[in-house]
Amino acid sequence: MLKMNNVTKVFRTDLVETHALRDFNLHVQEGDFVAVTGPSGSGKTTFLNIAGLLETFNGGQYHLDGLDVSNLSDKERSRIRNEKIGFIFQGFNLIPDLNLFDNVDVPLRYRGFRSAERKRRIEQSLEMVGLASRMKHLPSQLSGGQQQRVAIARALAGEPRFLLADEPTGNLDSKMAHSVMDLLKDINARGTTIVMVTHDPLLAKQARRNIFVRDGKVSELHEVSAFAEDETAASKVANSKQ
């Protein structure tokens, strides 16, 4: 599904070169639920941006769903984001001027669905996150957890093969975080591949696989079943170094 081989990303300014990712290798199977953890500055976000085709990279290869996406035009990348990837952001990123219906509608418009099809999908996905009755509400009228559910509905409405979540519970209290996680697991259970970036090891534990990123590299890979106590300690140490 997602295959990165020796992906490198370098940020250049006039004075310094920063290697955000170096020889990054990762394979994610269809239907998997991977949590990517690591201290801040480790390259998590860069990985997420490249995986989601939000940023280009300097070297290596990246195949998404069998397609080499290294040299695509901006327009083609936009289309792939729209068709194959669903995004969930830490800050929800709902458009404050649009009601829930119009928010979920946004990616469907870019897909070019007809109005009846869009309506069906919007209602279906809002139904799934339990907010169908509040379609005409504005994001500001909802709680954080509800907003994130709308964002998930928006990500799912286009029926992507692949869901990218960036600290999906970062702005939520633990109760809301729980229900959002349950929703994600539920979605994964229905066959959607999920890659979730988080700094929270407890959250990561709920995924099927964990990847630990440090200094722009995958330093450890775990099946969650093999998850060990000392891993938490390691990540704490890494954090305190920052």
């Binding site: 936009s78 984001r81 995004f87 952001f89 990123n93 870019y110």
Partner: peptide, 16 residues
């Protein structure tokens, strides 16, 4: 800006 970035992430092309 944020909204525009989000739209782009959700698949809006530059021309959109």
């Amino acid at each position: 800006r944020k909204q525009i970035g989000t739209r782009r992430a959700l698949g809006a092309s530059q021309s959109a």
